[in-house]
Amino acid sequence: MKLLIGNRNYSTWSLRPWLVLKHFEIPFEDEVLQLSGPGWRENLAARSPTAKVPVLLDGELVVPETIAIIEYLADSFPDRAIWPRDRAERALARAAAAEMHAGFSALRTHAPMNLRASHPGKIDLDAVRRDLHRVETLWGDLLGRSSGPYLFGDFSAADAMFAPLATRLRTYELPVSDVAQCYVEAIYALPAFQAWRALALQEPWIVDDDEIDVIQGRVAPGTLA
């Protein structure tokens, strides 16, 4: 089984199924497909049916799209409890994952994931205030039900879906409650996340489209080292 991923420092959608594979000790290998540089779009289109990452390869089967990959893994390894065992909790976990998949567009647009960086004060809080309020409410409700440290007690696919959002809160030091901050710390303490982050910090590549100083016009594209 192989997972095709993008640059670890930036690729939020790649991080999610990678965490599931790593945390639940499912044997796999990964391959990074560059998200910048000469010919990167053509190379991606040649390897991925959607010209996007991630893509899971399992024998002859090619599965694109993060949630589809996670569901395939859950079906393939039912002993791993990738989703909560309880039916009601599982429904809530899938609802939360679907909301993350389709929502929080302001945070995703204005605060791109960047695990190597620290950019306090660079995000217009008015632009992301509604998303911050919603994530506080959602996390607070679920953590109140489960008592933490993860949304449904033990780490699950729902937490994998929200892990990139947790990194945005830290990278840009966005104002959140103690409850939300504790959840961010729990994500960063997860061994699987630590393994991903360690590899991200070693990457030399820069993707200008995901660098806030380029996005906001502080530096010119192609000038970050």
Rank of each mutant, 00 (worst) to 15 (best):
S76L: 06
W40H: 15
R170P: 12
V176Y: 07
T167Q: 09
D30C: 09
H119D: 05
L199R: 13
G217T: 03
T12R: 04
N114E: 04
R116C: 07
A45I: 02
M161L: 00
W13Q: 04
A102H: 10
A163I: 00
L125W: 09
P204V: 03
D124T: 01
A225V: 12
R87T: 14
S76T: 09
A81Y: 10
D213K: 08
Q202K: 10
S105P: 01
A45C: 04
R130C: 11
Q216D: 11
S177E: 04
D86Y: 01
A68G: 03
V176W: 07
L142K: 04
K122D: 09
P120N: 01
P164G: 05
Q181I: 05
E42T: 08
N9A: 13
I5K: 09
L151Y: 03
R16L: 01
L73A: 00
V20Y: 08
P164A: 05
T109G: 14
K2I: 12
Q194H: 11
Q194S: 11
L4V: 10
E211F: 02
S76V: 01
E65H: 03
V55S: 14
P149V: 07
W13F: 08
T171K: 11
V62G: 10
A106C: 08
E185D: 14
P17D: 00
F77A: 01
G59S: 10
W196I: 11
I26C: 00
G153S: 05
Y188H: 15
H101A: 04
E65R: 00
W40C: 07
A97C: 05
A186R: 12
P120G: 01
L15Q: 15
T109C: 07
L138K: 14
V53M: 15
D126H: 06
